[in-house]
Structures are given as structure tokens and as C-alpha cells.
Design a protein around this nucleic acid. Structure first.
Lengths: 210, 210
DNA sequence: GGGTCTCTTGGACGCTTGTCAAGGAAAAGC
DNA sequence: GCTTTTCCTTGACAAGCGTCCAAGAGACCC
């Protein structure tokens, strides 16, 4: 076999691999949309297929089984989840800036992505019952914790203070705050996001000591 | 009809009502046990019946349908959930007492009732997708908030300080802390409860200003 | 343009689910 | 003790599930 042929074959097989991966991603996106709408408990493969442009049989061409699909979904979800506050941290010039912008960003994502967030909590909870996703879920949670840590650390730096609680605790507190706001928001309480935006700065101030 | 007869009939009908309610409670208890074990998504009526001493058909004698049963479960769950820290609040003589005992109690219930707690979070999350339980779930959450408020208010009183955040925020923070500890505990992390016990006092101190 | 390989469809399977009804067992009433 | 009422079991049902497969459609190479 000539080198040219080998290169060609590589290119083709790479293209196939990419196409395969792309379709997997596309189907996983449809699955995530369905999950966000119906929740884990009521999401079926047929329902997922119906939210895509394919028929239900194709799912078993791209995924070995349901767990494989859902695991892929969780991993794909991660990328959306985890880079949300980076630019805010980078852009803030003062502690007051960061406080305000971070609170506003949390409120904004609560309003805009409520269904995705409820899916996240659903999947995280599911991992308490099913071993299959647990590793991936914990990995995402770890990254979320890091994401919050960046905010808190930068905030402390700008405020010439230092974090007063471990980063795991800081994450737990802010996540609890957000989850409670999500609960209210999805229950129809109009002021839920505004309440979150008001609460975040005071909490942020309290978890750094200066 | 004589008065005696009326009294007798009342007594009998009351006894029947009580018996009916008792069996409903008994079946709901089996359902809760099953839910705590399998999670909402994988709990079926047949599975519930198998965890009781009856066959699956009886569930439709005591409950009109699955939603009726699960709603009853949620309500029944409430009573277990909500009185947990009352005696600690009553017994504490100093702020340091309360801090220590409350943290210890949280760690203890995390260790002892982890499966019940994961069920609670599962049901609360489910209510974000299904309207049916939402009202009951929100009511329980409101009571949990009050429960936490009692602790915080008493703590502030003993410390001659005042609560520095709204009670909804205090609840959100402590619940977030607990949930994160539950996550770690059920993932097999041995020190999760100990970590919670260590974190609670510092958080408690920070949400009252003195 | 015929043949090969990739991709997709739609139907079939075995199983589980919630629901229901017919009938037996047990208890209550007289 | 017989009848009536209450309670419980068993088996059936339609629907939905995850999974698999035969076969067609389409892309691609020579």
C-alpha cells in the first residue's frame, strides 16, 4: 500500500469517526432537550428520537444501550455547565464589580436555563441511586466546585481578604442558594431570580473574611 | 334509630375509617421504604407490594392510583422529616452547646438516614417536573425552613446577636451543605459526616452577626 | 453504473408497567 | 349459623419500554 493510499484511508476513516461523533453529539443534544423537558424518570428512547429528526432505531446504531447514551449526555452536559462565570471573573476590576456581576449572572442563568438546571439536579440525584453515572456526575460536581472557587478566590483577592471556608463549603452554600431559587422560580414565584441576586452578594461577603 | 344505635354505628364507622387509614399508612410506609431503596424512577407498584405483606392488587383498594399513593407518601414523609432538631434547640444552654449539638445531630442523621434523605431530594426534584406533588413538597420545604429558622433564631439569641440573612437564605445554605455531604457520604467518602460536622458551626456563626 | 459499505427505517420480540375486574377469604352483623 | 360486607388475591388487559434485526436507502469507490 502506498503512502498516498494510507493517507487517504486515514483521512476517510477520520472523517467517518468525526461524522460518527458528530451524530452522537447531535442525538445526545436531542436527548438532553428531552430530559430537560420530561425529567429522567419519564424520558424514553422513543421520546428522544421523536425530539430528533431520526427514528428510534438509530439510537442503537450510535449507542450500545440506554446507559451509554445517558452517560454520553452527562459528559456532554458538562461542557455547557462549567465555563459560565469565567469571563466575569476575568473582567471584574473591583470586589464590588465581581459581586454584582456574579449575582446578576446567576440570576440570569436561573431565568434563562431553568430547565437545564433542574435536569442537572435530577441527574445528580439519580446518581445517588444508580451507580452508572456516578463517576461522571461527581466529576462535573468537582468542576462546578472549582468554578465557584475561582469566583470566590478572585473575590477575596480583590477584597484584600482570604476565603474563610474550604472551597467545598463555599460551593455547597452557593449551590444550595441557587437550588432553592430554582425551586421557587419553577414554582412560579416571579421574584425568585431577583431574590437570588440580592442574596448572593451578602453570602459572598460572608464566606470571605477580611 | 335510638341514640345508642347511632353511637354504635358511629363507633364502628370510625373504627373502619381508622382501620382504613392505618392500612393506608402501612402501605405508604412500604412504599417509602421501596422509594428510598430504588428511587422514584424505578419504583413500581408491584415492587412496593413485594416490600409489604400484601399483593399488588390491594394498592388499588386503598389508593385510587399511583399518584394518590405517592402523594400520601410525601405527606407521611413530612412527619418524620420535620421535628428533628426541636429537642436540641430546647436543651441548649449556650450558643456553643447549640452549635455543637446541632452539627452533631446533622452528622448523625446523615449517617443513619442517608437513604431517606436521598429520597427527599429525589421527590423534591421530581416536583420540578410533575405538578402533582409540587404543593406538598413546597409545604414540606417550608416546614424544613422553619425548623432551621428555629435553630438559627435560638442560636442568635444565645449568642446575643441577630440573624444576618433572611431565614430562607439560612435554610438554603444549610440545606446545600447537607446535600453536598450526602452526595459524598453516598459516594463512599468516609469522612463526609465528619466534614459536615466540622463545617456547620462555622457556617452557623457566619449567618448571625454579632 | 454496478457493487460495497454506511446509515436509517420500521416493525417485531419479550418484558414490565398501571389499571381493573372477578372471585375467594375473612370478618361483622343479626 | 347464615348473610352481608369488607378485604385481599389472582389473573388479565392495553400500553409502553429497551432491544434487536431484516431490509431498504443512500453514499462512495473502482
Amino acid at each position: 500500500m502506498t503512502e498516498a493510499k494510507e493517507r487517504t484511508r486515514d483521512r476517510i476513516s477520520r472523517r467517518q469517526v468525526d461524522k460518527f461523533a458528530d451524530r452522537r453529539a447531535q442525538l445526545a443534544a436531542s436527548a438532553l432537550q428531552t430530559l430537560a423537558e420530561l425529567g429522567y424518570a419519564r424520558t424514553s428512547l422513543r421520546e428522544i428520537a421523536q425530539n430528533s429528526e431520526f427514528s428510534h432505531g438509530v439510537l442503537h446504531y450510535y449507542f450500545t444501550d440506554k446507559v451509554d447514551l445517558l452517560t454520553h449526555c452527562v459528559r456532554q452536559f458538562e461542557e455547557v455547565c462549567v465555563t459560565r462565570y469565567d469571563e466575569i471573573v476575568a473582567g471584574a476590576r473591583t470586589a464590588a464589580d465581581l459581586e454584582r456581576d456574579f449575582a446578576a449572572a446567576m440570576a440570569a442563568t436561573l431565568r434563562a436555563d431553568a430547565k437545564m438546571h433542574r435536569l442537572w439536579y435530577d441527574l445528580r440525584n439519580q446518581s445517588l441511586f444508580e451507580e452508572s453515572f456516578r463517576a461522571d456526575v461527581l466529576e462535573i460536581d468537582r468542576r462546578r466546585e472549582e468554578m465557584i472557587h475561582h469566583v470566590v478566590a478572585r473575590y477575596a483577592e480583590l477584597a484584600s481578604a482570604s476565603a474563610a471556608v474550604p472551597q467545598a463549603v463555599a460551593y455547597a452554600l452557593l449551590d444550595g442558594l441557587f437550588q432553592q431559587a430554582l425551586l421557587r422560580h419553577l414554582a412560579g414565584e416571579e421574584e425568585a431570580a431577583a431574590g437570588l441576586e440580592r442574596a448572593v452578594p451578602s453570602v459572598l461577603a460572608r464566606i470571605v473574611s477580611g
